[in-house]
Computed example of a mutant assay.
Amino acid sequence: MSMKSLRSLFAMLVIPLFFAMGLGLSTSAIAADEQNSQQQAGKTSEADLWRAVKAGDSGFTTAQGIEPGVLINVVGNQGKDVRNEYLTPVMGIAVVGVFVAFLFFYLLNGPSKLSKGFSGKMVLRWSKADLWIHWVLASSCMVLIFTGLNIMLGKHVLQPYIGEGLWASLIYGSKFIHDWVGPIFIVSWVLCVVKWMPMQTFKMYDLKWFLVVGGYINFGPFKGQHPDSGFANAGEKMWFWTLTIFGLFIAASGLMLVLPGLELPREASMAALLIHAISAIIIIAFTIVHIWMATVLSEGGMECMVSGYCDENWAAQHHNVWYDEIKENNSIVYKD
Rank of each mutant, 00 (worst) to 15 (best):
I275K: 03
A232I: 01
E299H: 08
I186T: 13
A294M: 02
Y205H: 13
F222N: 03
N218F: 10
W209K: 01
L255I: 12
I250W: 04
A251S: 15
A271G: 05
W196L: 14
K203R: 07
R266E: 08
A252L: 14
G301I: 04
A232P: 04
E267I: 15
V187Y: 11
M199H: 12
Q225A: 07
F222L: 13
V190H: 00
I278Q: 00
P227I: 05
G214H: 09
M256N: 10
S169E: 08
D179N: 13
G235V: 01
N218I: 09
W292M: 10
L262T: 00
C304I: 08
K203M: 06
I245V: 10
V194Q: 01
F210C: 11
L274W: 09
G215E: 05
K223R: 15
F286K: 00
A168Q: 12
F219V: 12
F222I: 00
A234G: 15
M204R: 12
V194C: 01
W209G: 09
F240E: 01
V258A: 10
D179R: 15
V181A: 13
I288P: 11
I250R: 03
A168K: 14
G261W: 13
R266N: 15
A268L: 15
V213D: 10
I186R: 05
V193I: 08
I275A: 12
F176E: 08
R266Y: 14
A268W: 14
S229T: 07
G300S: 04
S269E: 05
I282Y: 11
P183H: 03
I283W: 04
E303M: 09
E267G: 12
I288H: 10
F246E: 00
G215H: 02
V194F: 06
M199V: 08
S169H: 06
L274H: 12
E263I: 07
L297P: 00
S253H: 14
L273M: 13
H276K: 02
I275V: 14
I245T: 07
V296R: 05
N218Y: 06
F202A: 08
I275H: 02
T295P: 10
I250A: 07
E263K: 15
W189G: 01
I217M: 09
I288R: 07
G224H: 13
V187T: 08
L191Y: 07
A268R: 10
W209N: 06
E303A: 11
G261V: 04
I291Q: 12
R266I: 09
K175M: 04
I282L: 15
L274T: 03
G261S: 11
L259R: 04
G230Y: 03
F222T: 01
V187R: 12
W239F: 11
F219Q: 13
M270K: 13
A234K: 04
I184E: 08
R266W: 08
P198S: 06
L207S: 06
G301Q: 09
G214W: 09
K237R: 02
P183N: 00
M197P: 00
T295M: 13
